[in-house]
Structure formats: structure tokens, C-alpha cells
Design a protein around this nucleic acid. Sequence first.
DNA 1: GCTCAGTCATAAATTTGTTTATAGCAGACG
DNA 2: CGTCTGCTATAAACAAATTTATGACTGAGC
Lengths: 322, 322
Amino acid sequence: MTEPDWDLYRSLLAVLDRGSLSAAARLLGLSQPTLGHHVAALEMALGAPLFTRSPKGLVPTETALALRPHAEAMASAAAALRRTASGGADAPGGVVRVTASEMVGTVILPAMIAGLRRAHPGIVLELSLSDRSEDLLRQEADIAIRMTRPLQGSLLARKIGEIGLGFHASPAYLAREGRPKDMGDLRHHTLIGPDRDIETLRGVIPAGLALTPEMFAIRVDSHVAHLALVEAGAGIGVCQFGIAAAAGLVPVLPDLFRPMMPVWLACHEDLRASRRIAAVFEFLGGALADYVARDAQAMVRTMPPSTRSAAPLVAEAWGEEA
Amino acid sequence: MTEPDWDLYRSLLAVLDRGSLSAAARLLGLSQPTLGHHVAALEMALGAPLFTRSPKGLVPTETALALRPHAEAMASAAAALRRTASGGADAPGGVVRVTASEMVGTVILPAMIAGLRRAHPGIVLELSLSDRSEDLLRQEADIAIRMTRPLQGSLLARKIGEIGLGFHASPAYLAREGRPKDMGDLRHHTLIGPDRDIETLRGVIPAGLALTPEMFAIRVDSHVAHLALVEAGAGIGVCQFGIAAAAGLVPVLPDLFRPMMPVWLACHEDLRASRRIAAVFEFLGGALADYVARDAQAMVRTMPPSTRSAAPLVAEAWGEEA
DNA sequence: GCTCAGTCATAAATTTGTTTATAGCAGACG
DNA sequence: CGTCTGCTATAAACAAATTTATGACTGAGC
């Protein structure tokens, strides 16, 4: 058996993605018979059928589905290669791909990116917003901003600091529904919480409160929508102090519930050699550090004077130390 | 810029590997002008020069060197894909790639593989012997046998047990040079130890002994050569009890120095779905457990009756628990 | 029940890529 | 100092892939 052309893998991936030869052909800018030939050649080379033909399209076999992750790995390696090449040897410009959570990407990053572009006009940024953290391993991104410690080998990680979380509500909501006096009071309020993604809060919820989806009258997994709901006065939800302060939200029970969430910046070891990636890494490191500092200030400012310290109330459950 | 054909990446990798178009052409079964054209096309597509031509061959530029890891990632993904495909959907046969240390691969595995082939005649085995443990992450192997706990995410790891290490020497050496009475005595003997790879021993050497290359009169990083030297009566070296016993070696100071080394079996989570990989995983798991048990017996048997227990003397430095 | 939009498969024409063959160049060796 | 071996580069002959242009099929919608 001779090794199949790598192009065939790309065609395979396209057909798996689109579900038909014609659609895959459009995606790759090839013609449908070409894709048909590619699939046939790959089936021949691998000695196994990959699709069952039907007039509605190609249905992948078990084998083809098993091959998919590997083909995707090739695709992301190819994308990483092109990104690397885009910067030339060590030209200041080029494409850098940053991954972050939806929240960070939509609320925190935009201002930083504006500054980054001003400081390094040659650098083109790609943002990949998702909450799964495998991105770096599979080389789907050059730099990652994460709220958990990246524990992969061969990953260079820097802890930026910790961000304070707390219950918040809009002034309108509090005027309408009153202000809870203690944690037990929260039961009589409209709470906004996660839907399926309870894991995220597991380390944050204080031991006293049971963690059940039933606690929350409004459930949504998107942190951005979560914030929007709180801003709209829909109920009480957990927000970062800095973001909440900027949005004019009022902290609720900040002296009873105030977990800290670590912020990590990470990239592949190898990639630090690239000048533009190092530049983005340093810039984001600085900008995030500033942001964390402002967040801490916002948190302290909104607390009653008696308890003005930045010590976390529910910290150990979440973070490890740097 | 349109995406280059993936074949070009393969050609790039071949040229980087061989250092010349002609050699790369031989490797890939293509002709030299074809490779030349591929490189030119890739340089055009990426917009950056990749090689400086010379009559001695092609010298890669900085850019090309930066691209290399990504091209290699593609190559291993392609290899993994083909391995997966070789097994068909869930046929019992197919290729499985196992990585292990040189020592394990040459001394311990052969007998197991013979048994494995008897139990599963359809399975073809590839052995990749190296001591770096990135193999699994980069999908360069399906299953890994490691002496450290694999701490990567999305990796399925099973701790097989622990293997006892200890100083050993050949009967001939001991007859000639005498038997050391305590650790201090070792200074007057010919010790065999690592050359550059001191890390490996760091967790093993007892606290009393300073860890310097100067300790060792014979230095070699290959564990297999290490064992051969001990067998040849060249000096005293650290060996696994089981292997040493089988080779007719005599334990030296087993009651003073007896670290334990964990044995882990690991594979990617996804791959457990493949029937043949699961079969190999289970078989190796069982065989290694048997081996560890025999090693423990050998260790106990060769110790003076007074201290006959399998408890490690220098254990905590090395292993974590399952 | 008919048309229409979508699909895959096939055959001939064309474009593309690959090879063979040749020339030129630098260093190793007797 | 010439020869020999390695390499790259170029041009024309060739083989191979791709495309265009078909035909045949299925299911949705009127």
C-alpha cells in the first residue's frame, strides 16, 4: 500500500463536513467529479469503503467517522503552518490566532485588541471564541486566555491574576424587588444561572448552597447573555466586578459571596520564538494585568468599608497557585 | 492567497528531512524537477522564500524551519489516520503503534508481543522506542508504556504497578572486586551511570549520595547498553530486579537502596473505541501486571530474609499514586 | 402527478502536473 | 589538473488529473 496524497485527506474532510460531493467541491473550489474521484482513490488506497452513495449525498461509514479527527488534526496543523508562514521569518506582522471564552472575547478583549492594533499595525488577529480548552493542543490557536490553569505539557502558561466574581443586579431590579439581606434571602429572588454547564459554577458556589438547576429561574449557558439579562433587570446573576461596575450594576451581598477566578495566558513553547506571537503574548499579558487590577479596584470600591479587603471568600475551591 | 495543496507540505517536509530535492524525490518516489516545482509553488503560495538554493542542496530559511513542526504534525496525523483506517470499522485486525522506552522495548516487550500475536493474529504491531513522552499527544503512537504518570488531558492512563530498581553486578565482577558493604563503599567501585540524562536518576538516588556525573566511571544514556555493561562485569549499575535476576546478576546492597518506579499504560480516549487498540491495551495491561508481579518476587527473593518486604526505600521521590 | 432543485455517475476535452533528458555548477579524489 | 559524483535548473514529451457537459436518479412542493 502506497501512501495516499495528502490532498485526498483534505477532500475527505470536506466531504465529511458538507455531506455531499457537490457541496464539498464548492467548498474547495473543485468540481464534483474530481471530489468523487478523490474519495474513490482514498477508498482504494485505504482498502476500506468510506461512504455509502445515495442520491441525497454521501453517508459516511464508521471507518470514515473514525478517520475524521485525524483529518481535522491535519487541517489545523496546516492552518497553523500557514499562520506561521504569514509572519515571514521574524517580520513584525502576520496572523495571530487567539482563543478565549465568549465572555472575554466579547466584553474584555475588544478594547485590548484596538490597542494592540495601534501598537502593532502589521499584526492581523483572528479570534476563536469557545469554552473548550483543547484549542492549543490541537494548534487551533496560537495564544489562549483561559480561566483554568492549563495543565498540558509543552505549554507555556503565565498566571495574570485573579478576577473577583459576585452577585449583581441592575438598580431597576433592586428598586422593584428589594435587596436581599443574606444568602437565604436569595431564594425569594429571581436568580440567573447556568443551564447545562453546571460544572463552571461548581467551584464557585459557596458550600452552604445546594447546587441544583432548580435554584435558577432563568437558565442560560452563554455568559454574555447572562450578563445581558442582569443588565436588563431580569434578575440577580454572577458577574465579574469590573464588568458589572462598567455596566452600572450593583453588587449584591459582596461581603458574603466573592469567589476569585484565575486568569491564565498560554501558548505553545515553540511559538514564543515567533516575534509577532511573542509581541501579542506580551501585550495581552500587560493589558490583562491592567484589567485585573481595575477589576480588583472595582471590587474593593463597591464593598462596605468594614470588609474592604481583596481576600477571596470562596477561593480554594477554584484555583491553584502559580 | 489560496490554500496550497496539502501535498506541497509533504514535499516540504521531505526536502527539510533530506536536505536536497533529489534525495527528497527518491524518498517520495517522485522526480527531482517535481520536487523543485513543489517547493517553488509553496514559496509562491506562502509568499515567503523557504530555501536558499545551492549546488550542495537546499538550505532551509528561518521560515522553513519554523514551519517544520507543523508539517510534522500533519505527517503524524496522516500516519494516525492510516493506522486507524487499517483496522477497518471494527475489524479485529489492523496496525497498532506502541511506544515505550528503549529498555522496555528491547528487554520486556518482545516476549509479550509474541504472546499478543498468538492471541490476536490479525494485529500488526509497530514499535516506536524513544524516551520522550510527547508521542501520544502528537498521535505518533496509539499506546504508550511510560515510567512517569502521563499528565495530559484527554489521555486515558492506567497505573500497572511499580518496578523495583537496585544496584546489580555480575558474579564475575563481585568475585574480582569484592562486595561493597555500605553506600560509602560504592566510591571504591566502578559505577555505571547516566551520561547527560541525569534527570532520570534524580528521583532515585538516595538523599545521602550527591548526584554528580563524576560519581560514575562509565557513563552511558542508553539503558540497554547500561545493562549490557553490568552483564559484562564492567561495574555496578542500577537495574530492574526482574531483568537482573533473569540475566543472572547479583543484587548489591538491596536493603539500602531500593527505589520503586511506576509503570503506566496510556492511550488517547478516542482510541479506546477502536476494537484492536482496546485489545492491545488490555493484553499489554495484563502482561505488564504479570511482569510487575514477577519483578516483585525476584526482588523479595534476592533480599536477606530479615528485610523481606516489598516496601520501597526511596519511593516518594518518584511516584505519585494512582 | 408534475416540475424543480438537489444529488451522483460517466465520457470526452482540456488543462495541469510529472517525467525524461540535458546542461551547468561546485567540491572530492587520485 | 582532469574526472567523478553529487546537486540544481531548464525545456520538451508525456501522463495524469481536472473540468465541462451530459444523463439518471430521488424527494420536496405546488
